[in-house]
């Protein structure tokens, strides 16, 4: 293994958590997640030669991962609706109220559009608005407006789901 491959894999190992998060959010089932994981690594390796250290490695990797995930989604969505997160809501016990709310919120996040998902992912990662702007290629004010709107929508969606379930 060459030195550049070793360096690449070392850096990836440090930020692997980031790729797992993108895969969880953008792929439907375990096999698809593994595919996406591999795809992101392949894509990162292809682009690594062009990485000039002008931005942080995590910022660069987020760009690569999100761009790949958004493209990867296409072939899966043609065959059915995106039902990520629904399995957890159905399968896991509902005893813990906090867990229940987490599951509802997770399912609501998965119903967002691809770009909104990416913004929420970065928000959950505690990225600054400037970092989000750099990764997404949107203005800081645009990010702020969208984020507020998404959070409001998530809250409404969760409350709606909860009241619907309590009603039934």
């Amino acid at each position: 293994m060459s030195a550049s491959e070793q360096a690449f894999l070392g850096r990836i190992a440090e930020h692997e958590r980031l790729i797992h998060k993108v895969c969880r959010l953008y792929a439907d089932d375990p096999a698809d997640r593994e595919d996406l994981f591999q795809e992101i690594l392949c894509q990162a390796w292809r682009s690594y030669a062009g990485f000039r250290e002008e931005s942080r490695f995590s910022t660069w990797l987020y760009r690569v991962a999100l761009n790949t995930a958004i493209t990867h989604l296409r072939k899966k969505r043609r065959f059915g609706d995106n039902a990520v997160g629904q399995d957890w809501v159905r399968n896991e016990t509902q005893a813990d109220p906090y867990e229940e709310e987490v599951q509802l919120m997770y399912a609501a996040i998965n119903r967002l559009s691809r770009i909104d998902k990416a913004i929420i992912l970065l928000y959950l990662e505690d990225c600054s608005y400037e970092d989000m702007s750099e990764i997404m290629g949107m203005s800081v004010s645009n990010i702020g407006v969208r984020l507020n709107r998404i959070r409001k929508r998530l809250k409404e969606d969760c409350e709606h789901q909860k009241s619907a379930r309590d009603g039934s």
């Binding site: 797992h20 969880r24 997640r33 959950l124 959070r151």
Partner: peptide
């Protein structure tokens, strides 16, 4: 969302492969 941040992050960070 802020109150549930850590819970959601825990779910998202589970290894996929």
């Amino acid at each position: 969302l802020d109150a549930l941040k850590s819970g959601i992050n825990n779910r998202l960070e589970q290894p996929v492969t």
